[in-house]
């Protein structure tokens, strides 16, 4: 009972709080008042504040500083200005890692989203035991990022792996070593990523459930076939969900690391065909001890992701339908 009372108090206090902001009577008293009123909630937020300041913002600030230095851990960091950033564009392996990463992002994300949408559509048919299927298809997402799966993948797509045995026995084709062939190594990792479509699928499924059935009924009455319904009802109403999945998928794909690290044995090989950006960053920092260069790479990655995300958000007015008429 007391707790409810307290809650109500806080609730009423909300109006008072806005008063403080609207009519500032000096910052210090209002801060004091804020503190007095909300000390306990702030204290409960403290772990989060500590987390973001000590574990996220602190390292970010120091990595920004380090990106302008030469730093091998053993000797103190030495200021070199923007040398690290300039060096990147002469570094063939850096450029190669960019190419590999972009190829990965632009193949894995669309494939993964298509797969997720397709399965979500099938599961949305109102089949029995939906929750079981949903769980089964979600499992790869839980496992996929793990080292164990990457090791398994390596074995499966190896020369004598199960994939080649299947190809040989069923189609009588002698497969290559998918992991060790520079032409296919990257795509075996793309496949691993596509396989983990569970998380966007769940979100798509939730989005599909939101589409009012009346729309389909009306379309049916007007004689629209299933295909037409899909492209004129389902897809437009699903665009906000597609946007969300696209952005999250893109950010995740740019940061992919574990799979290429394990599958290539930490080398990015063969011939740097799986040298992901983050893997090269890791090698530079923790294998070759060029922390300054690695930090600079991290900031460039942040910039690339930010630009890509901004571009996508910039285009939303052309294709995302928020359904509120407010374009």
């Amino acid at each position: 009972m007391k707790l409810i009372h307290l809650y109500n108090n806080e609730h009423n206090g909300g109006t008072r709080l806005s008063n403080v902001i609207v009519k500032p009577r000096g910052i210090i008293p209002s801060f004091k008042r804020l503190w007095k009123k909300n000390a306990v909630p702030y204290l409960f937020l403290l772990p989060w504040f500590l987390g973001i300041f000590i574990l996220t913002l602190g390292p970010m600030v120091s990595s920004f500083y380090l990106s302008f230095t030469q730093y091998n851990i053993l000797s103190p960091a030495e200021w070199v200005g923007i040398d690290n950033y300039k060096k990147m564009f002469d570094d063939d392996r850096f450029l190669k890692s960019l190419k590999v990463t972009f190829t990965y992002v632009f193949t894995s994300v669309p494939l993964k989203l298509s797969c997720a949408l397709l399965v979500a559509l099938l599961l949305n048919k109102g089949i029995r035991g939906l929750s079981i299927y949903r769980t089964i298809y979600y499992i790869p997402t839980l496992l996929g990022g793990s080292v164990a799966i990457a090791v398994l993948w390596r074995k499966m797509f190896g020369l004598e792996g199960i994939v080649n045995q299947f190809l040989l026995n069923v189609f009588n084709i002698q497969g290559t070593d998918w992991i060790a062939n520079p032409k296919t190594a990257l795509y075996s990792i793309v496949l691993l990523s596509v396989w983990q479509f569970g998380s966007p699928m769940i979100i798509f499924l939730a989005g599909l459930k939101q589409v009012p059935l009346e729309y389909y009924e009306a379309a049916q009455v007007d004689g629209a076939n299933k295909m037409r319904q899909f492209f004129t009802i389902t897809i437009p109403l699903l665009t906000p969900v597609i946007l969300f999945n696209l952005v999250m998928g893109l950010i995740g794909a740019f940061q992919a690391f574990t799979q290429s690290f394990i599958i290539s044995g930490g080398t990015g090989g063969p011939i740097d065909s799986t040298l992901f950006y983050t893997l090269y960053l890791y090698m530079k920092g923790f294998a070759f001890f060029e922390m300054g260069y690695a930090s600079a790479m991290a900031w460039i990655l942040l910039l690339v992701i930010a630009i890509m995300t901004a571009v996508i958000f910039g285009t939303t007015k052309y294709w995302v339908n928020y359904g509120d008429g407010g374009k």
Binding site: N72, P182, T267, G269, P270, I271, M283, F288, F289
Partner: peptide, 21 residues
């Protein structure tokens, strides 16, 4: 000194030769 990166470049170069790339 700083031989780690050199070893990695050697590995890569040897593969390039082998694959004739």
């Amino acid at each position: 000194p700083n031989g780690g990166e050199w070893a990695s470049v050697l590995m890569n170069a040897a593969q390039k030769v082998a694959f004739k790339s």
